[in-house]
C-alpha cells in the first residue's frame, strides 16, 4: 500500500469517527467506546480488502462481514452509509422509532448487514457457518467477523473456534477488538483472557497479533497474510483503545461502553477530530 492510499484510509477513518460521533451525539446515548475502537478494521475491510458492491448488496460470491459484537452497529452503519448502501442522512435515525438502524445489527432492516447479531458469542458461529457454506459452494468468498474481548468470555466463541479449525476454514478471518475493557471493568479483573494469542493458537488458528489496532498499514498487512493461510482460519488480535480518537471518551475507560453523549460533547469531539464544520 502506498503512502497516498494509507493517507486516504487514515482520513477516511477520521471521517467515519466523525459520523459515529454525530450518530450517537444526535441520539444522546450509545455504545460509543466500542464503536470507536473498531473503525480502522472496518475501514481496512470496506475500503481496501472486501469484494462487495454497494449497488448490489446481495451480490453472489461477495465477501461477508459479521459484527459479532453487535452493539458496534453504529460504526458499521457509518461505513455502509459512506459506501452508499443507504443515504448518509439516514444515520440521524439511529435508534429512533421505526428506524432501519437499531443499536444492534439487524440483517432484515439494514442494507449491507450480512447477519443479525447482538446476543454475544453467536455472530462468530454464524461466520463459521458462512465460511463452511462458501467452501461447499466453492465461491471463493472471504468471511470477516469482529468479536469483542468481553464477548470472548462466552463459551460459544470457543465452540466456534474449535469448529472453524476442525473444518479448516482458511476463508474465515476474525478480529478480536482487544481494547481490554468491558462493562464492569477491565477484562483482566472481570474474567481474564490472557494469554489470548496462545488460546487461539491452541485452538488451531493462524494467529496474528496486530500491535497497533489503529494502524491501517498494520491491519492491512495482517489481512494480506491471513488470506495466505493454507488450511487454518485466522485470528487477528487488534490491540485497540476503547473510545479511540476522542479523548474524553478514552478517559471514561470501562464507562464508555454505553454512555450518555451530549450535544456539547459531540461538538467538542468533532473539533478534536478536525471536523468542526461537519
Amino acid at each position: 500500500m502506498d503512502s497516498i492510499e494509507v493517507g486516504f484510509l487514515e482520513e477516511k477513518s477520521n471521517y467515519i469517527r466523525g459520523l459515529i460521533v454525530k450518530e450517537i451525539g444526535n441520539l444522546g446515548v450509545g455504545h460509543i467506546g466500542g464503536c470507536l475502537s473498531v473503525v480502522e478494521a472496518l475501514v481496512a475491510l470496506y475500503y481496501k480488502h472486501m469484494n462487495i458492491n454497494p449497488d448490489n448488496p446481495q451480490m453472489a460470491g461477495r465477501d461477508r462481514f459479521i459484527m459479532s459484537k453487535g452493539h458496534a452497529g453504529p460504526a458499521l452503519y457509518a461505513v455502509l452509509a459512506d459506501k452508499g448502501y443507504f443515504p448518509l442522512s439516514e444515520l440521524d435515525s439511529l435508534n429512533q422509532p421505526e428506524t432501519n438502524l437499531p443499536s444492534h445489527c439487524d440483517m432484515l432492516r439494514t442494507k449491507g448487514i450480512d447477519m443479525t447479531a447482538g446476543s454475544l458469542g453467536q455472530g462468530i458461529s454464524c461466520a463459521v457457518g458462512m465460511a463452511k457454506a462458501s467452501k461447499i459452494w466453492k465461491d471463493d468468498a472471504y468471511i470477516y467477523c469482529i468479536i469483542g474481548d468481553g464477548e470472548s468470555q462466552e463459551g460459544q466463541v470457543w465452540e466456534a473456534a474449535m469448529a472453524a479449525a476442525h473444518f479448516k476454514l482458511n476463508n474465515l478471518i476474525v478480529f478480536t477488538d482487544y481494547n481490554k475493557l468491558q462493562i464492569d471493568g477491565t477484562v483482566e479483573e472481570i474474567m481474564g483472557l490472557a494469554p489470548l494469542d496462545k488460546k487461539w493458537e491452541a485452538f488451531g488458528w493462524n494467529v496474528i497479533e496486530v500491535q497497533d489496532g489503529h494502524s491501517i498499514t498494520q491491519i492491512s498487512d495482517a489481512i494480506i497474510k491471513a488470506k495466505r493461510s493454507r488450511n487454518r482460519p485466522t485470528m487477528l488480535i487488534l490491540n485497540t483503545i476503547k473510545g479511540k480518537g476522542v479523548s474524553f471518551v478514552e478517559a471514561l475507560g470501562a464507562k464508555s461502553h454505553n454512555s450518555p453523549f451530549s450535544k456539547e460533547q459531540m461538538h467538542s469531539a468533532l473539533e478534536e477530530l478536525n471536523l468542526g464544520g461537519m
Binding site: 461477508r64 453467536q122 458461529s125 454464524c126 463459521v128 457457518g129 458462512m130 463452511k132
Partner: peptide, 8 residues
C-alpha cells in the same frame, strides 16, 4: 448459530 449463518 452456525446453521443460521449457513441459512444466511
Amino acid at each position: 448459530a452456525l446453521a443460521a449463518g449457513m441459512a444466511a
